[in-house]
Every structure is written in C-alpha cells, then in structure tokens.
C-alpha cells in the first residue's frame, strides 16, 4: 500500500519556468511511450502542486492539457517542428495527470495517466460547416480507402513492396462524397513484382512511410490520390536484368531523408540519393 502524500511544499504558478520544464518532461515521456497515432505537444498546464520526496528531491504533481500534432509518433521529425492539428481538421486533445520527480535539477517522470478525446462535432461545426469529421478507423469506407491507397502507392515504381502497418486517422466529408485517411506503411523484403503472397514478405526494421490519401466518389467510379513520405534506409531490391547487364543500383535513402512519393515516380528530397 502506498503511504499517503505528505502535505504540499508549495503551489507554484502554472507558468513557472520549473513547472514548464516538468511539463515538457511529461510530454516527452508520453510521446515516447505510445507507438500508435500522433505526437502530442503541450497546450496548457492546468494544475500543479509540489511535494517533498524523501529522502531527497521534489515531486511535481500536475494536470496538463496536450494537443495532437500532425507528426506520427514513429516520424523522426523533432516535436518542435511538428504542427498542431487545427480545429478545422477535428483536433484531438489529451488530458494527463503526471508526477514528475525533480532530483539534482533533472526532471524524471514517475508516472503518467492520459486520456485523449476529439473535439465535439458541434464545436467543429461552429467554425466550419463543411469540415470533414473524424470517422471510426474500422468504418467500411475508411478501410476501402486505405486498401485502394496502399494499392495505388504500391503500383508506383518502388523498389520495395509496402505493407500497411496502421490506420492513424480518417475523416468523412459531411455528404460522405470523399474520405480522407492517414496511415503508416512499411517497406518489406519483397519487390512489388514478387509480392503475390504479401504474407510471406517481411517488414524491414525501423523504416516507415507516412501516407495521406483521399478517395472521391464520382459518377461511375472513384478517384484515389495518395502520397507518402518514407523515412529510413530503403534497400535495393535486385531487379531482373537483361543478359549481360550488371546489377541495378537503385536509390538508397539515408535515415531521416524523406522520400515523397506522389502520383508518379518516387522523388528523393535531399542530397542523399
């Protein structure tokens, strides 16, 4: 059984620099301890109390409000370069209760409990009548859009066959005429041509593609537009060569270099190709 907390030492201001430091330690902790969805950033410190920790140190017991960013947790982009998801994109908030230990001027999170919740549909409607609202990730239209987008991405001339790893976000427009999805794919050891049996293709470690796609229904069919940014070292998969030709040297992309694959061949951004 835990002993009850001693009386608080002090109630500092929520915007006190030391409290902010503790809050940022908590944000970092939260982002490094979830493997799905998006990175969160600090929006507001709601409450804070400081307790003495025996034999040494202090515990910052805090309530903090976080906001979802557009960077996936597996995306190596530093949090400070990530954009906060806007209200028009149906923002998601995180509420966390955290205890952060301050010892030798270092802040270490001892525990955190968070709940995330999207903004209400009514609130989104107040600022934008035709904004797309978040949809369940297992919605039939969402699943269909992701399948179509992964197929479209693989149909482009990549060196690897990409497998779906996670559906991260989905939005339906008010009249459901289009579906917007965000998902994560990973390259495999199969080339797109020998991926007839995708189950036999093995994912390559620590390489991810972050994709956005829109499926629009139209008379007599549908349009799919997909684009992915791939991080990691994409290996060269040997391609069949005509007799006498040497091995093909395909693009090898250094870790952290984004490859933007839109409609058309993959384009490497940066000098590392």
């Amino acid at each position: 059984a835990r002993s009850p907390l001693p009386p608080p030492v002090r109630d500092p201001n929520c915007d006190d620099p030391e409290v902010e430091q503790a809050a940022w330690a908590a944000v970092q902790y939260v982002n490094s301890n979830h493997r799905h969805g998006y990175k969160y950033t600090l929006n507001q410190i709601d409450k804070v109390r400081v307790y003495q920790r025996k034999p040494v140190g202090e515990v910052y017991s805090m309530e903090i409000d976080l906001l979802e960013t557009t960077c996936h947790v597996l995306d190596p982009t530093p949090l400070e370069n990530c954009t906060v998801r806007q209200l028009t994109e149906h923002a998601v908030e995180g509420d966390c209760d955290v205890n952060v230990l301050k010892l030798d001027n270092q802040f270490v999170v001892s525990n955190a409990k968070c709940e995330s919740s999207p903004d209400s549909a009514e609130d989104v409607r107040k600022i934008c009548l035709d904004c797309a609202l978040l949809a369940p990730l297992n919605d039939t239209k969402v699943l269909h859009t992701v399948d179509a987008a992964v197929a479209a991405f693989n149909a482009q001339n990549h060196t690897s066959y990409f497998k779906l790893l996670e559906i991260s976000r989905a939005q339906l427009t008010p009249l459901h005429s289009s579906v917007y999805v965000e998902f994560v794919v990973g390259p495999t050891d199969c080339s797109p041509k020998d991926a007839a049996e995708p189950a036999a293709c093995n994912l390559l470690a620590d390489q991810h593609g972050f994709c956005k796609a829109t499926l629009t229904e139209k008379v007599g069919g549908e349009d799919v537009a997909a684009s992915c940014v791939v991080f990691g070292t994409v290996p060269v998969v040997p391609q069949p060569q005509p007799d006498g030709a040497g091995p093909t040297v395909g693009p090898t992309v250094a870790a952290g270099t984004p490859v933007v694959a839109g409609p058309g061949p993959a384009v490497a951004v940066g000098p590392a190709v």
Binding site: D15, N43, Q44, K47
Partner: peptide, 30 residues
C-alpha cells in the same frame, strides 16, 4: 488624484498569493 486608499475596519492582513493557474493556453482550447 483619488486620495489615499480607504482603510476598511476589521480587514485582516493580506491573503497569501494565489497561484496563477491554469497557465497560458499556447494554441487553443478544445
């Protein structure tokens, strides 16, 4: 211009400073 602050009989010593919480909103409130 308004003169000295009036003294309220029976008023005790100044209350302890109330911590300023919640803190600032960095983006927007959901």
């Amino acid at each position: 211009a308004l003169g000295p602050k009036p003294v309220i009989p029976g008023a005790g010593p100044a209350a302890p400073a109330i911590p300023l919480c919640p803190g600032r909103i960095r983006y927007f409130k959901v």
